[in-house]
Design a protein around this nucleic acid. Sequence first.
DNA 1: TGTTCGGCATGACAGATGTCATGGGCCCGG
DNA 2: CCGGGCCCATGACATCTGTCATGCCGAACA
Lengths: 206, 206
Amino acid sequence: MTSTDSIRVLLAEDQSMVREALAALLGLEPDIEVVTQVARGDEVLAAARATPVDVALLDIEMPGMTGIEAAGQLTAELPGVKVVVLTTFGRPGYLRTAMEAGAVAFLVKDAPAAQLAEAIRKVLAGERVIDPTLAAAALAGGANPLTDREREVLRVAADGSTNAEIAAALHLSQGTVRNYLSTAIQKLATRNRAEAVGVAREKGWL
Amino acid sequence: MTSTDSIRVLLAEDQSMVREALAALLGLEPDIEVVTQVARGDEVLAAARATPVDVALLDIEMPGMTGIEAAGQLTAELPGVKVVVLTTFGRPGYLRTAMEAGAVAFLVKDAPAAQLAEAIRKVLAGERVIDPTLAAAALAGGANPLTDREREVLRVAADGSTNAEIAAALHLSQGTVRNYLSTAIQKLATRNRAEAVGVAREKGWL
DNA sequence: TGTTCGGCATGACAGATGTCATGGGCCCGG
DNA sequence: CCGGGCCCATGACATCTGTCATGCCGAACA
């Protein structure tokens, strides 16, 4: 793009009303133009290939693929596109994985709307934009203490599966599942699997 | 208001970015004006008293008070205000309680944005607006099969409390708690409390 | 007035869950 | 090469959870 053209934005968000509202909001900015909208994570890459964009604005929770996975695809295939991740929850764990996936900005939806356009301009200027509150929480909250296996087991347990079902799903023995769950419960300082799932969700560790 | 003035709207939604984006969207309509914005359910009534409005657009999930509770307050105190409930999830149970609280429209956020302005005009003309898909689901899904007590117990169990903690919280015996949970699990056709909580959440019965 | 339904409780029992001790295999870094 | 961490597993144990049978009370209702 040349400096006189407006910034071309790809907007990915599954809830139509929110997506179109955000488009309306960005449409008020004279130097920003939303050129593509998609409602699914797995449509992001194709849309970015079809229509050149400068910035991709991605929600995390989407059908088909999370915005973080889509960010990974985008930065791998179209490294020129700046990725901004926009999400409902300030899960510290999300921030880390989003950054690892190549995002250059991370915003939460309860930040003032003015920050959105501002962030888009900043990332295009090469800056990184991270909510300071969230950055602090991510540093303080520390990294995910769970091992890969513990996380997998907890994820399957999250929807109410019994130990036997988890064992079958992951090709483990029931006793092993119990052990992983037990260590996860201790690491998260909770009393049972339900609480552990809750805490892991809150932190974005699940 | 006279027929030549624009429609005055109160907008209640906790996530600033979404709220301001919706305001921007409605601002594009020549006959609609968002005159008040609040971020908490418990600020709705005061805001509506301070600034006369024709329509209140309420999100359900908000700090302080749910949009449904706020709807109840509004229709009790300011019956002239038409209440539109706007929410993320099309939980059939929510629809029912929202209507009982006096709402005249119920929209989900993944409906097209155009429906929002349209709904506002319709409710002002005395119509009710309900997403047809959701209305069908509410009728098909039927009413909440849980008794008051079962619901209370399930709600406390939802965050991972143990039977003893639930019993203490509700001043019941542990055996009674187990019985209520047992019947709730059966009514929801699930195999344990975790699944029961999931199903109840999905349906808006919690 | 009886019957039914929801709320509340107890006791007993099987099965699920959480903890602990223990041990083997693997890979990586010192 | 050795230690430490993660992975996987077993067996034993205490506790928690879910189910069932049974009973009492009060309110609603025909």
